[in-house]
Amino acid sequence: MSNKGARNLFIFGSLFFFLIFIVLTFDTMGKLDKRAPEITEEVNAGKMAWHKYDCIGCHTIFGNGSYFAPDMTKVAEKKPKGYLKQFLMDPKAVNPKASMPKLGITSDEADKLISFLEWISKVDTNGWPPKPILAGAVGVAVKELTEGQKVYQSLGCSNCHMISGIGGTTGPDLTGVGSKRDGAWLSGHFKNPKAYVPNSAMPAYGHLNEKDLNVLTDYMVSLK
């Protein structure tokens, strides 16, 4: 191949692939709105707040960002709204171990950020993030779950709390909770967390029926 031939191949080949890319971009842009819910003013205001506080400087969203703090793609699905709001406004008051600083996010901004994160959680991301394979397998393969464990799982408690290393770190670790609290404290706390822990960001579970509340309390007491 002559130098001129190589040069022309480079120039026209690049233009050719760029043209394909432009066509694909048009096609993609036409399909994006159907893959996500409508963007309300509230959601957009939340996105503006996301940029204002440079959230991407620590977190990731759709897996892109700074890898220093948890991914925010599905956070609105996993954590209770009330918790998110309190945490955003003053992280360390809710969770003393939290790394996130108090940025001065107002109550209004927090609401908007949560709307934005709810929008994000509903975008069709081709199945990302994938559900963990092994966490699902443990419950099935190792042993039958007790009634209390079933309630614990169905309520998604492990999104925030940890037992023996499995679960979230946003709420207190429940590994030895049975040796710290008795049944009365625990069941009362389920009904109204703030009455027991002033800064608590946990939602109240007063709507649970008596049986579920009892088996869940028993399960907690058994964690010693």
Binding site: A69, S99, P129, P130, P132, G136, M162, I166, T170
Partner: peptide, 10 residues
Amino acid sequence: ERLMGLDYVA
């Protein structure tokens, strides 16, 4: 985190 489902912060 991804395969076992442990918490990011942990």
